[in-house]
Design a protein around this nucleic acid. Sequence first.
DNA 1: AACGCGTGGTG
DNA 2: TCACCAAGCGT
Length: 355
Amino acid sequence: MTNDFFAPKLLAWYERYGRDLPWRHTTNPYHIWLSEIILQQTRVVQGMPYYYRFIETFPTITDLAHADEREVLRLWQGLGYYSRARNLHRTAKIVVEDYGGIFPTTYQELLKLKGIGPYTAAAIASFAFCEKVAVLDGNVYRVLSRIFGIETDITSHAAKAQFTQRANSLISAEHPDLFNHAIMDFGATQCVPVSPQCMFCTFNQVCEANLTGRQSQLPVKAKKAKVRDRFFHYIVLEDEQGRLAMRERTGKDVWTNMFDFLLIEDEQLLDWETLSQHASLQPLLPELVLLEESPVYTHVLSHQRIETRFWHLKVTRPLALPEPLHWYTPEAIDQLPKSVLVLKFIDQWVSKITD
DNA sequence: AACGCGTGGTG
DNA sequence: TCACCAAGCGT
């Protein structure tokens, strides 16, 4: 199929079958930026409520810039990939402080901002400023690899260059914004990864994958590495006023700047006999009574599988906590950003104390 | 330049 | 149970 034929056909499909999504009714770069960050590696249904909550809580980028990172992370809680929230906040501050609150308007300028890579820069540039630059995301890889029968491994750098070129050679000059919305929507709803209904596809007479029955083989994608197994023992200290000892995570591990409990990690799950000999517990043990040993929670991330047991302990006398732990009331805990793993424990703990 | 970074849904 | 997927980015 010729290049000239592609865009009109795609746009005709979009006009009829495109989804009606809130961020498609605006050219406000702040709203578009926010939606694009939320939607990175995230389904529309999962991101939608977060989009509304952020717009409501931070109506302008200035409001976002003036917030505490903790508040931003708390609002992001449950969405995952939390560096997106940290970078969102950093970039909001930079735009407000260094750009006078005015979002950069070109692909090249947008690329300089933290958290904005090639995909997001193209999305904002085209949707907010109608720049003629093609987006390249998982949908676009899939659609182009199938229609044009491209067998390059899409995780490779060669593929990135090849598909970028191809997409930019196809993009509509009159409606680059609509074209980008359309090709992603087409991938998301028609040219789906598994069992696409090619019978009803507007491209089925020209699609290389359909014509040769290779839908399930395209796009070609290298296998991911196996996930790592980890074993967490969370020591949950509760004082006589019903407060819990929590700390902010630091470093480059998962859940940076989010809150959890005193953590003992090992190569395997340990029983209390062994766990209680751990050095970090020795100064505390004389003041502690073991209340409950939770079942094992298996928390699966894209790259790790974390088996966790929570050890709920009560302190019998006022206790000076070792840094960086601090006591938090249930109300304070609610305001802290927490991983879903920690949330699961907190939720059953709260339901227990409130009967 | 591979790898680390979440969560929830699906077949 | 498991592999794979969902609008990627930073290092």
